[in-house]
Amino acid sequence: MSHIARWLIPAVGIIVPLPSYAVQYLSVPAAQKECFPECDQFMAAHIRFTPAQSQAIEARSGQKELLRGQEVWRALKMGKLQGYFIVDYVIGKHLVIDYAIALSAAGTVKQVEILDYRESYGGEIRSPDWRKQFIGKTPQSHFALNDGITNISGATLSSRHVTEGVRRVLATYEVCLK
């Protein structure tokens, strides 16, 4: 987590703490196994962008490069490259969403999995009924949607930022991995 913070915070600035919820769907190792079940080794090959690479990625994807690097693992089966497992971060509505992209060795998207989903609540926290459900929950206590905290209908969240993120990661592949 610490190296994630190092990459994100200088670029994003201070994130205002809002009342929020978080769901962890998959850890990085679990997601690796799920995206590449046939692979026996995931070799870290993290990239720290040079200014030239950052510029090239921005030009290719049409997006401002938020991260200073990219967490990449080479997925290997008996030492042979099967593809790339890449962790990326985008801002959802207010907070950061961690997600993973599995690329084939040729650079096509195999799978996109949400790892950690965080979202803040807006004005509804003013309702006492709403706040009541948080009573007795500490940040350490494991809670998730439907496990104590209710599900929400009527506030469809756009996945546009993830779609843009995938485009940026594909540009990263072209510039740095191909």
Binding site: V112, S159, V162
Partner: peptide, 9 residues
Amino acid sequence: RARPLLGTF
């Protein structure tokens, strides 16, 4: 599990 599809999660 969650995946980005149909323009949402």
